[in-house]
């Protein structure tokens, strides 16, 4: 990879996040540094409870930051006024894990897609026609017909809903999309389709993605760089291929060994590797 260092679109420095208050306060993320250059994808991997989703929420401004900073487009998001933060929503979007909970069941798809576009601050206002055009082209882009706009979430499958969620995240032409386990609730075949779609829009639109998953194999295909998280701390980071092929940290190795693969011979090798790792640790 030979390219000159760019100003990162998102940089997270020394991030710490606490949950709970008073004596029940617990630090779930501690001293995490991340940087995503424009048009690149960072994969964030870890087991459940490792703090990966919390980092995503901190980047989105959904949880308070206890220490450190989140700088997006050169500005510290914690120090923005309410209006600036709302404006930021246009350039920083999200796709969540659960396709059943991520769309309001009482609203049509058209309403859900258009909602972030209305009542924007003066500079980025869109006309009704612009919104409709954009909706049509994005629905086509994620493989759904324009008639989808008049239908309700209950009329779509999980995979289709996740496509709708991706379309929604792109309505405002964001520069960063946080994908929090976007495929882990889907069937294997649908997973591949949605992953390909994400990789495609990332490339075509020059998006930056913060891709969060517990599955290293999923993250590998879509990421340029991978950060491995355990217990709220970074244990390994590096280019995607390197981390996947030659993991250095024992935790990354066990994470890799724990993922099942369709090839039985490969699976046997992994099982042996996992046992060896377990004996080393125990």
């Amino acid at each position: 990879m030979t390219e000159q260092p760019q100003e990162p679109l998102l940089s997270v420095t020394g991030l710490a996040v606490d949950y709970g208050t008073g004596r029940r306060r617990a630090r779930v993320v501690e001293g995490v540094d991340l940087a995503i250059p424009p048009g690149r994808t960072l994969g964030l991997v870890g087991e459940s409870g490792s703090g990966k989703s919390t980092i995503g929420k901190a980047v989105l401004g959904l949880v308070p930051i206890a220490a450190g900073s989140v700088v997006f487009e050169g500005r510290d998001v914690a120090r923005l006024s309410g209006r600036e933060r709302r404006a930021l929503g246009a350039r920083r979007q999200v796709v969540f894990q659960d396709p059943y909970s991520s769309l309001d069941p009482t609203k049509t798809i058209g309403y859900t897609l258009a909602e972030p576009c209305v009542n924007r601050p003066a500079g980025e206002r869109m006309t009704r026609q612009q919104i409709a055009d954009r909706m049509g082209s994005l629905l086509g882009r994620v493989g759904l017909g324009p008639d989808a706009a008049h239908r309700y979430p209950a009329q779509f499958s999980g995979g289709q809903r996740q496509r709708i969620a991706i379309a929604r995240s792109l309505m405002l032409s964001p520069r960063l999309v946080v994908c929090d386990e976007p495929v882990s609730a889907l069937d294997l075949s649908v997973q591949a389709e949605v992953l390909n779609l994400l990789a495609e829009v990332q490339r075509d639109l020059g998006l930056s993605l913060l891709f969060i998953s517990h599955d290293l194999t999923v993250v590998r295909h879509i990421s340029h760089e991978i950060v491995v998280l355990r217990g709220g701390r970074v244990v390994e980071r590096g280019p995607a291929e390197r981390v996947y092929e030659y993991p250095e940290d024992p935790y990354t190795q066990s994470l890799l060994a724990s993922a099942p693969v369709p090839d039985p011979d490969e699976q046997q090798l992994r099982r042996d590797a996992r046992r060896a790792l377990a004996e080393q640790e125990g």
Binding site: R85, A87, G89, A90, Q93, V94, P116, A165, L172
Partner: peptide, 8 residues
Amino acid sequence: RVLRASGI
């Protein structure tokens, strides 16, 4: 959460 993150 999506709506909040979008600045609604």
